[in-house]
Simulated assay, not measured.
Amino acid sequence: MALKTPSDMLRGHTDTIVLAILRKGYSYGYEIHKSIMEKTQNQFEMKEATLYSSYRRLEEGGYITSYCGDESQGERRKYYKITEKGRELYRQNEEDWEFSQRILNKLLEEEL
């Protein structure tokens, strides 16, 4: 049986990570990627393909919307914005994460 690495465990929360970033305002793909790198002080890199799969999944579910920016130089960027449904999903995922943390802490706590 293959063990999960910390990166595997974090990738299981990709949608929640994306929603957390978009709660602060609209953003485009590379900017979200860069934000993850900055927040983790380059200790965790989420592959762009993983992120783009998340954007597509979240948009299909109605959790985010997207639009193309009007770039005067270079390629037009696709901007993402969280919807109210996305905010609700984020809140639920946050509650689930906090519950999981409490349970894991209790289970892993050393008996005195």
Rank of each mutant, 00 (worst) to 15 (best):
M1K: 13
A2W: 09
A2F: 11
K4E: 15
T5L: 05
T5H: 00
T5Q: 05
T5E: 05
T5C: 00
M9R: 12
L10S: 08
L10G: 01
R11F: 13
R11Q: 11
R11S: 08
R11V: 13
R11D: 11
R11A: 10
G12D: 15
G12N: 15
H13E: 12
H13W: 09
H13Q: 13
T14Q: 06
D15M: 06
T16S: 11
I17Y: 01
V18Y: 06
L19F: 13
A20P: 01
A20W: 07
A20C: 05
A20Q: 10
L22M: 01
L22E: 00
R23S: 14
R23D: 13
K24M: 15
K24D: 15
G25W: 05
Y26G: 07
S27D: 07
Y28V: 06
G29H: 00
G29W: 01
G29T: 12
E31S: 11
I32E: 02
H33A: 01
K34N: 10
S35Y: 02
I36E: 00
M37V: 12
K39W: 09
T40N: 00
Q41I: 06
Q41A: 10
N42G: 03
N42R: 13
N42H: 12
M46T: 02
K47F: 04
E48R: 07
A49K: 14
A49P: 07
L51F: 08
L51G: 02
Y52L: 11
Y52C: 11
S53V: 04
R57K: 14
L58I: 05
E60W: 04
G61W: 09
G61L: 14
G62T: 04
Y63M: 12
I64Q: 02
T65A: 06
T65L: 04
S66W: 05
S66V: 07
S66R: 06
S66N: 05
G69E: 10
D70F: 04
D70P: 00
E71S: 13
S72Q: 13
S72N: 09
Q73T: 13
Q73D: 10
Q73V: 14
E75N: 12
E75I: 10
R77N: 00
K78W: 04
K78V: 15
Y80S: 04
K81W: 03
K81Y: 03
I82C: 00
T83K: 08
E84C: 03
E84K: 07
E84N: 08
K85Q: 10
G86T: 08
G86N: 03
R87H: 10
R87S: 09
R87K: 14
R87M: 12
E88T: 11
E88S: 07
L89G: 02
Y90V: 02
R91I: 15
R91L: 13
N93M: 11
N93H: 08
D96K: 06
W97Y: 15
E98V: 13
E98P: 01
E98A: 13
E98L: 13
R102H: 10
L104C: 06
L104P: 01
L104Q: 01
N105I: 05
K106I: 05
K106Y: 06
L107G: 15
E109P: 01
E109T: 12
E111S: 05
L112S: 03
L112C: 00
